Each structure stands twice: as structure tokens, then as C-alpha cells.
Amino acid sequence: MKTCLVVDDSKVIRKVARHILEAMNFEVSEAADGREALDSCLAKVPDAVLLDWNMPVMSGMDFLRALRDTQLSSRPKVVFCTTENGMAHIRAAIEAGADEYVMKPFDRETLESKLQLVGLA
């Protein structure tokens, strides 16, 4: 079973994402900020990370940079999931190591298509 870590400071977004991902046969874990997500990835690398941009403690971009600097045995596919829609934000996320980008609010069809693009759906 594929695994996905949902990283968002909004409990509602995590719940919606969990519902969609579990319907797609993913095993889902959650983190409320980038620091918690990094600790989770260091303990067990997921296949995918659905990542919010703006969070307390450690932002999505800071998490992505920290993840890139770790010595993990494998790298999860990272899909940024955010309200930030400017081309500069999208370019910065991709340059920092994100594999895809999805806008909030999202639905199953949108998320599934992004996960297909990174080879996980």
C-alpha cells in the first residue's frame, strides 16, 4: 500500500485530504507543521507528501529545503497544496524540489491527476 503524509496546519484540510487519499488506497499519516513532518519523514519515508505552504513552526518551503538536505534512503514525491497561486510561488516550489503543485480547494479528481503525474496513482 502506498503511503502519504498530509502536512497542513488546518485540521479540516488534513481530514478532507485523508478521506480522498484513503479512498485511493493510500495509508495516510498527518503532520500539523513542517517540523512535525520532517520528524515523521526521518522516522519512516512516505511515498508522497501533500504539503501546505503557510504553516507555523516550519513552513512548507523550509520543510522542503530541510528534506532535501537529509540523508534519506529514498525521496518522497512532494505535491505542494496551497492557496499561493502566483507563478513565482510555483517556480520557487519546483526549484526547491516539489514534484507537483495543486491549488486549494481541491477535489479527488484534481488530487488524483497530480498523483498520476508523479507516478503514484
Rank of each mutant, 00 (worst) to 15 (best):
F80S: 01
A93G: 13
C81A: 13
A43N: 11
L42M: 13
R65C: 09
I13R: 06
V45D: 00
P105E: 05
L38V: 13
Y101W: 05
D33S: 09
S29R: 15
E109R: 14
V7A: 05
E30N: 10
S73Q: 12
D8H: 04
N25S: 15
E36N: 11
E36H: 11
V16C: 08
S73H: 06
K114Y: 00
M58D: 00
A37R: 02
A88D: 12
L67F: 09
L67W: 07
L50H: 00
F80C: 05
M55Q: 03
G119T: 10
Q71G: 15
E27Q: 15
R108K: 15
T3V: 10
R14E: 01
N25K: 14
E100C: 10
P56W: 01
I94G: 05
K11S: 13
S74Q: 11
I20T: 03
K114I: 02
S40H: 09
V57P: 00
A23K: 15
S40D: 02
D8Q: 09
L64G: 01
V118H: 01
L72A: 12
A88S: 15
F26M: 11
R65Y: 06
N25A: 15
G119D: 06
E84G: 08
L64M: 06
I20S: 03
D62K: 12
L50G: 02
F80T: 01
S73R: 10
D69Y: 04
V6T: 07
K114H: 05
T110H: 08
Y101S: 05
L115H: 02
M24R: 04
G86T: 15
V45K: 07
P76V: 09
V12E: 14
L64I: 06
W53N: 08
R14K: 05
K104E: 00
L50K: 01
D107H: 15
R65M: 09
A88N: 13
V118W: 00
D107P: 03
F26D: 11
R108F: 08
W53I: 04
K2A: 15
V28S: 10
S59W: 01
S73G: 12
A32I: 09
V45F: 03
N54H: 10
H19D: 11
M87L: 14
C81N: 11
F63P: 00
A32K: 14
K15D: 10
D47F: 02
M24E: 13
K15A: 14
D69E: 13
C4Q: 02
S40F: 09
G119E: 04
R68P: 03
W53L: 12
V45T: 12
W53H: 09
V28R: 01
F106S: 03
G97S: 08
A92E: 11
A98F: 02
I90K: 14
S29L: 11
R35D: 06
W53E: 02
L5E: 01
A17K: 02
F63M: 11
V12C: 10
N85F: 08
G97L: 03
V7W: 05
H19A: 15
F63T: 03
N54V: 06
W53T: 04
S29A: 14
S10P: 01
T3M: 10
V118F: 01
D8G: 07
T82C: 05
R18S: 13
N25C: 14
D107Y: 12
N54T: 10
L50P: 00
I13E: 05
M1N: 12
V118M: 04
